[in-house]
Nucleic acid binder design. Structure first.
Length: 111
DNA sequence: ATAATGACGTCGG
DNA sequence: TCCGACGCCATTA
C-alpha cells in the first residue's frame, strides 16, 4: 500500500515523477547528464528524460541536468549559464560548458 | 498496434 | 571542433 498521499498533480507518469525527484536531489553547483538520470533510475533513456524535463522541468532545478558534453539544455543556454555562475558550478575554459569532471554528481549525499 | 516526436548519446567522417 | 546518421525510450497521436 502506498504511503504517499495522492497529490493533485498525479497526472504525471511514474517515470516523470521519478525523474523530477532525482533532479531535486542534485546539490547546487553540481549537475547530472540526461543519461546519468536514466541510469540512476535504472530505466528509461536520455531522450525520455529530456522529454520529461521539457514538459515538467520548470518546477525543479532543471539547469542541473544537461547534455553529456557539458552543454546546457537546448533552448535554455543563457538562463542556465547564469545559474551556473551564481552557484559557482565549475565551468570549462570559455565558460560555455560545465566541467563535468568536477561538477558531475554521482548521487551520493553531499556529506 | 503503428508512427511520430523530443531540453539525448555515441560514432564516423 | 562541427555535423549527420542512427539508436534509444517514454509519451502521444
Amino acid at each position: 500500500m502506498p504511503s504517499e498521499p495522492l497529490h493533485p498533480s498525479e497526472q504525471l507518469s511514474a517515470f516523470a515523477e521519478a525523474v523530477l525527484d532525482v533532479v531535486e536531489l542534485v546539490p547546487p553547483g553540481r549537475v547530472m547528464t540526461y543519461g546519468d538520470v536514466a541510469e540512476y533510475l535504472g530505466r528509461g533513456g536520455p531522450r525520455a528524460v529530456g522529454t520529461v524535463m521539457a514538459r515538467y522541468g520548470s518546477a525543479v532545478p532543471w539547469w542541473r541536468v544537461l547534455r553529456a558534453d557539458g552543454s546546457p539544455p537546448q533552448g535554455h543556454e543563457a538562463q542556465a549559464l547564469r545559474h551556473y555562475r551564481r552557484e559557482r558550478t565549475p565551468l570549462r575554459p570559455g565558460g560555455e560548458k560545465v566541467d563535468l569532471s568536477r561538477a558531475r554528481w554521482d548521487g551520493e549525499p553531499a556529506a
